[in-house]
Nucleic acid binder design. Sequence first.
RNA 1: GCCCCCAUCGUCUAGUGGCCUAGGACACCACCCUUUCAAGGUGGCGACGCGGAUUCGAACUCCGCUGGGGGCACCA
Length: 505
Amino acid sequence: MELGGSYLTAKHRLQTNSRSIRRMSESVRTRFAPSPTGFLHVGTARTALYSYLFARRNGGQFVLRIEDTDTGRNVADSAAGIVDGLRWLGLDWDEGYLKGGPQGPYVQTERLDRYHAAVNALVAHGDAYLCYCTNEELEQRRQAAQAAGRPPGYDGHCRQLRPAQVRAYEAEGRKPAVRFRLPDKGETVVEDLIRGTVPFDNATLTDFVILRANGIPTYHFSAVYDDVDMGITHVIRGEDLFPSTPKHVHVFRALGRPTPPAFAHLPLIVGADRRKLSKRRDKVSVQQFRDEGYLPEAMVNYLALLGWSLDDHTELFSLADLERVFSLERVSRNPAAFDIKKLDALNGHYLRQLPPASFAARAWPFVEAAAFPQADQDLLARAAPLVQERVNHLTEVAGMVGFLFTDQVELDQAAAAKVLTDDGRAFLAEAAARLDKTDPWTAAGIEATLRGLQTERGLKPKTAFQPVRLAVTGRLVSPPLFESMELLGKPRCLARLDRAASASG
RNA sequence: GCCCCCAUCGUCUAGUGGCCUAGGACACCACCCUUUCAAGGUGGCGACGCGGAUUCGAACUCCGCUGGGGGCACCA
């Protein structure tokens, strides 16, 4: 069978252009198809978010499929990390892994029979052929081609093997892989919702393996097969897959789907160095952000803005907001640098916006982890309004409220040297005496007492209050002083004032 | 080496021929508020990579250059 020539004539292109219009009436189905790496990568998470949002926005379904065909790299139960991250972000899927559905199973290594049947059919039709080349031979020829200035792709060595050669290879004990046959001439047009129409010269495309010698398909086959089988209408994925798309277009056609799904290739997320996010250089795990005190609300909002915008001024979006306004048309085409400062600002915003009780509940695990002797959830709840607007991460809370949960407060030495002068200690002693008579023990009462003393002594507020702050909290930077003292309680405050007042300078 | 994508403040972006002396956000700086630190408020710094072409008029269209990124596996 002759496969040369252009697959897409002008007439075909017209048809594909009208495709997007027809699709509007079909039910949208998107999928998120990660390989199980043990954790959810932020770039992958954004892809999941956009796929989820597009499905929701269009009243469609969102499918979760696990692509574990790289068996050497799979770690036991590593899909759990992906699921964990998705759930934390609030991205629920309609069918797929762990949920089942009509097109299951949704784990690729559990679908091997289907792939084998499909590959056999492709071979029978001449769309694919057995390849007996070994890795060594392939590598050798690749290098030779490179050296000679030719493209490094497959050279078509096994395209037309004679029966005698096949028998000889089999006699050697070689196990064949299966390669997909690509046309040598013409062009393949990729229609992309974000990048537009991009023609690829078929001469630059080379036959690729779809079924390994070990019987497991490669990504380029299983992903396409499953997208057909699962009725995926929109393939939303990272731009790194864009160069593979013309190959996929041919597989779609060979599998009986002449018009492939709509493609949307998202710009890559890069690090501060402008390069693809790297596990080594960058913080890339969504779970790591969670563990470092980021809110899923902030993460979702930030990821949504990394490569997409609604207009020239709206920046704050809840997941529910996004489900109503997201569109692929407004996705940017240039790579976006991950800016932790902006994430921090967003996180601070969402932290401040939380009802105090909810803030306390979310902060509690972090405070608990700090293992204070007198950690107290109720006290944390009362302190919440004081610390809420002062932190950008939940991890900062413990350091800020620690003085409430232990009586072993250590005074910052440098600060003590600066502030606990003779005058400072004298002020503390007198403050303790007057505070002893302050009743009721409220922030207002405490403030009245201390301001009275400060005015009497003719001191500047800062000069008077910083020693008190240090005595009570151990630091020069703390939540508001009077409110903190109210929360701490009179006996503990007085003990701390006395101790600092009598501390040897 | 070959193929593809991209190009507005440091960063994320708005902008689809005149509404642009280019808007917003983060960051940064200053001031205000203030018991510290924050938060908040006000103001400031700060960009259309370069060269051609089209046009009465280009950030916006076309070409070239430069720069950046991605891909070329029996990885995904």
